[in-house]
Design a protein around this nucleic acid. Structure first.
Lengths: 198, 198, 198, 198
DNA sequence: CATGAATGAGTCTTCATTCAT
DNA sequence: TATGAATGAAGACTCATTCAT
């Protein structure tokens, strides 16, 4: 039995990250102790600090993972060969589904960013901005081609939509009446109706 | 000179609440120590515990204050004698302006709710729901009277808009290009456009 | 019974300082835990941190206390109305007696300076230099007036003597054959013989 | 390529010892981690524990190396065919030069002895005493033959001189005005002047 | 009303050492 | 010979809260 996977078959770093994600989402970053994380992962504190430089590192890892996934998906959708209206709708809906599928990551993301060390915070903000800008470019493309209204600045539109995505972790319940896809369709519809040129 | 106002003219409890609000918004609830609060307010720990039962109480006070203000304003607008479309627009814009005017309270609100004790949390949620329901009733009134589309459930519409309000504390900067009123107008427009029956 | 003196009649800060001095001298700064200090002083950790900002602060306090005493004694001797040879001899002997009388402080002083935080280290060095310079001025006065040889730079003479003072905590034992005063007389004699103009 | 010399041509144990010496002198024994040592030496922890039983062993090695060198030099000088006054002067000056040439070893020596395990500490003390006694015998030989004053016990004279040697690592700077040899000459002169029979 | 000394449980982090490979 | 993952005990420090005055 390999040392790196004792307990079950999952490597220690993954186990730690999974435990941290669950706990950070449940109780928040500050209310989660390193002790609780290692107990949940079934390892010792030393092991955690062997793989992660600090508690803060664990949090950063959650962010990095989520940003990577979302950026890749947005890039794929934005680069697709489809009318801009279709691409905006797909992107708007996709981020909703992905967020709901990773609701733990999401609630951590939107609630605990200020716990990151200044430099990591800066790094995350930069990647976040890249995402925001890609989405905004899509809106602007639609505005330039006349399919979207120019009444509202594209920046504000992006923040409008992402506010609702951000908010999902506050109210969405897997056992509620709407499936992730249904929520995504509704929210994308709302965005598109708000955008459509009169 | 009254003991309760030493320092400047403001009573001690208010001073404490103001200091706590600023600090909670700056560093978050957990990162703010009681010591820092009393120092910022220019009083001693004994004084704080004289007026407030716990650190948690201070946080709850911030919530209560904000909920009270917003509920009152929503009630006034909803009860007004105006077409439903007008009332929804006013309510949607008003909550934006009020939130920006109290951005500290708002960022605490959306970030620190899980720090409240279970019972206070329940209480806040209940008041929050009352607010949500009043707003939803307005939307439903518009849907029933045919001025709003029924394509999207009213609940979801409310969460859509409040997501963007929630998000304000993340991106709005007083020194940015848009005044609170301008942001409010834009966001209310987006909502109304999304709602308007086809 | 006052809270500040429970245990015996000595105030808590003094008790802590005494315990820390003894332990630092015994085992060295790094090998002494805060836990051991508070146990020896009969208080809790919280009490220590109520009075001292850090473990480092405790060390600095030991230094400050010793430097203050030695500087005062040197000033008094140097300002006395006596021939320079007499004043040098008195100063040289006095620092030996004082050092032996506070052998714990002394061994901490000469062994643990590098554990002070950079700024505190700087401060201690500055006060130390003041002491050194006062002593050196005395030597130079003797050299200028012709009673001391100028063969060796005064700076080096001071370091020569203080090396031996420094060294006392390594070898002096209270139960040895020589009293503090006898050691002081011998060391002062050695210095004076080395200095005397040929 | 031999495994023991990878990196550059120096064998691993030497590389470890050199790294440890530098780090112990810089930050002190306790403030230096085994990790830092192996990184500085460009090897892994396993390698260190292959060659040395413990961190403590590394420290002991530094001591052993220095004691060996100094004892050899003293023996050679003491056994030389020269007048006692000359031999004392040579020994006194030589220990100064050797100490300055190995200032890292010296500062470790005088600052970290209490970090050795009790048995190693005892061993070092014994070798130290042998050195001390050889030097004292030289002084006593001079006193017996009438060239040195008997006013001061030889033991004290030795401690007097070694105090100043000990002190060198505190104040000597390679970029200062005096060369090692000049310092050695001055300090030996001071000793000889203090010793000379009246 | 208000003080501030004291508590004590809890925080994150470090580190010398071991051992399966 | 050498690796490096893992241990586990210990480290310094923080802080909400209490209570005698």
């Amino acid at each position: 039995m390999a040392r790196t996977t004792d307990g079950d078959g999952t490597p220690v770093p993954q186990r730690l990250l999974a435990a941290a994600t669950r706990l950070f989402a449940d109780r928040g970053y500050d209310r989660t102790s390193v002790q609780e994380i290692v107990e949940a992962a079934g390892v010792t504190k030393g092991a955690l600090y062997h793989y992660f430089g600090s508690k803060d590192d664990l949090l950063h890892e959650v962010y990095a993972r989520m940003l990577r996934v979302q950026q890749e998906r947005l890039d794929a959708i934005a680069d697709a060969d489809a009318p801009v209206e279709r691409r905006v709708r797909d992107a708007a809906a996709d981020v909703v589904v992905t967020t709901i599928d990773n609701l733990d990551d999401a609630s951590i993301f939107f609630r605990s960013m200020h716990h990151l060390s200044p430099e990591k915070n800066k790094q995350v903000r930069a990647e976040r901005r890249r995402y925001h800008e890609r989405f905004r470019a899509l809106i602007e493309e639609g505005q330039a081609s006349g399919v979207f209204s120019t009444a509202t600045p594209a920046d504000l539109v992006v923040d409008y939509h992402f506010g609702s995505v951000h908010h999902l972790s506050t109210w969405y319940r897997p056992d509620g009446p709407l499936s992730p896809q249904q929520v995504a369709d509704h929210l994308a519809d709302l965005l598109l109706r708000a955008l459509r040129a009169p």
